[in-house]
């Protein structure tokens, strides 16, 4: 996995361990909060805290450089690696899509 020099792994509280539908919902919200914080910190999107889950991040001002910095932060925080087939505009276009993708990657890692 790629270790970004300016990030310490798992700096966010670990929220992906509980189970059950209610827990899944809470977990999803917590991941989205983390994504919003990372968007603000690494993708130059200070407005991220106020963005809807389905808001277009590119329209909100995320650059391609910012999206790569976000990916690196996500890879480091969740200890996952984005496969090349997910490295496209759509996969990083909204907070909801990013959250789904991260959850899939984390689930895939745990299943492996």
């Amino acid at each position: 996995m790629f270790l970004s020099p300016f990030l310490a792994r798992n700096r966010y509280p670990c929220v992906i361990e509980s189970t059950g539908p209610q827990a899944a919902l809470q977990r999803s919200d917590a991941v989205k909060t983390q994504i919003r914080e990372m968007l603000a910190q690494y993708a130059s999107l200070p407005s991220a805290a106020g963005l809807d889950d389905d808001a277009d991040l590119y329209a909100a001002g995320m650059s391609s450089h910012g999206s790569v910095q976000l990916m690196l932060a996500l890879e480091d925080t969740f200890d996952v690696e984005f496969p090349d087939n997910l490295l496209n505009r759509k996969s990083f276009s909204t907070i909801a899509i990013i959250e789904q993708t991260v959850n899939q990657l984390v689930a895939g890692k745990e299943a492996a």
Partner: peptide, 11 residues
Amino acid sequence: ANTSNMLLVNK
């Protein structure tokens, strides 16, 4: 610069 940024994640 653009390519080098993408190569931080793209294999």
